[in-house]
Nucleic acid binder design. Structure first.
Lengths: 240, 240
DNA sequence: CTTAGCATTATGTCATACATATAATATGAG
DNA sequence: CTCATATTATATGTATGACATAATGCTAAG
């Protein structure tokens, strides 16, 4: 006799099931942001579980940013804000060293890769703002050898903004603490000023110049040199 | 008489507060993955709230991947898996068009930006595997003008893998559905074969060749041409 | 020493009651 | 009649207590 294959026993909890059902409900009904969701009691009744379970499932979805709850008004469907989920866990004191390192590498990748979008979207006022940032930086640069971290952030942050990609931009905002952390660690373990290969140093001012008059290709090359110390650091510590 | 500034009323819910307290607890005690967390009842007692509230707070942290719960064993601290949080919400049917578009742009940025890491980490066996993928692709390419989607995924996926950045790699895995979705939409709204500028078409085989013998710089240029249709599409539809 | 069974325990689920905030409606002043 | 204010209804937020369930560790039988 033919035995049926033993189906894996459903090990998922009630809350798990309810969560999937809710997600399916959202998709099937093609909810748009702002649409109301049945109230907890009704859901509990139709699903045949306690309100507790429904609540926990909804709470998960809320944590993921898929629903929003207001007293008396009930719950409404929301477009999940991908990025927001990271915010709470993206804490250098919570993340492992390796994850931090990889996120830092990700930043290098992003800045190298966004050249084309910068050239596509650059506006006169953006370039002017970069100009201001560079000017301020150079005015205060005499006392310190290493550029100050906040000017560094201002310049690169502006670049992300110019990419015109809100998701990317939020992502970068979120990653800032990681950068700071790795950056500080980097300067601490390696306190001596980095020595660029002769004649290869690229400042923010020079980057801006390329952004004005150059091409995506030349900008990438300039950016690569600008980021050289960080790349070297990433490579030196081995890529796992 | 000097009036004290009106302190902003704490609008956060009990669960919010408990969540922050727990996070603070984790950081202060420098928990490492695997460390046990006090049980719900104890937490409820020490914090002076009901078990319900503690549970909801813990549930949020669990949703974020910061803690894991096992029956009888209690809760343990976990290294948050950044990426995993995305998985549930990163569904083309749930995300808005604009977010999708931005994620697709993000892919272009990533592939343009990771050249240096590819050259730093490339291994003979990786190159051989790429070789195999390209060979298979060319063997089946005669019947179709457009390359098949799965070979496309295989090749580019392998590149991500070669970056040796697990976070990046998981990220790409997660974004795959988005790519598929946008890709299909792209070919549907614009069914005619894309016309590369004369003599500029770069195939996977050519990319591989550059990866073997070229430099990060030349690879970026080759990749830029390879991705040209996608870039054009991104630019054509305006960057918001 | 191994194994089967049992007791223990922390999370998972349920039921119920009450608190709280707010949308909707009713009320009153002008 | 219009606008501001008070009332009420309602859905979420919190509390409490009970029981279910599964995994752990102990115990006793083999």
């Amino acid at each position: 006799m033919e035995l049926k294959k033993l189906e894996p026993v459903g090990t998922e909890s009630l809350v798990d099931k309810v969560e999937s059902r809710l997600l399916k409900y959202f998709k099937d009904n093609e909810l748009v942001p702002g649409d109301a969701i049945p109230k907890e009691i009704d859901l509990a009744n139709s699903l045949g579980v306690s309100r507790t379970v429904v609540r926990e499932a909804l709470l998960r979805l809320r944590t993921l940013g898929l629903v929003e709850s207001k007293k008396r008004r009930g719950m409404i469907f929301k477009q999940p804000d991908i990025i927001n989920n990271f915010a709470r866990v993206l804490d250098p004191t919570l993340l492992g060293e390796d994850t931090m390192k990889q996120l830092f590498e990700l930043r290098l990748i992003l800045e190298m890769g966004m050249a084309d979008f910068l050239f596509e979207n650059r506006q006169q006022k953006d370039l002017e703002e970069l100009e201001r940032i560079v000017a301020e930086e150079e005015a205060t640069a005499t006392q310190k050898i290493r550029f100050s971290l906040d000017k560094e952030i201002a310049f690169h942050g502006k670049l992300y903004q110019m990419s015109n990609n809100v998701t990317l931009q939020k992502f970068q905002d979120l990653l800032l603490p990681v950068f700071n952390y790795v950056y500080l660690k980097e300067t601490k373990t390696n306190p001596d000023v980095y020595h660029y290969s002769e004649g290869e140093f690229v400042s923010h001012g020079m980057l801006l110049d390329v952004l004005k008059k150059g091409t995506p290709e030349s900008f990438r090359n300039a950016m690569r040199r600008h980021l050289e110390p960080h790349f070297d650091h990433a490579f030196r510590n081995g890529s796992r």
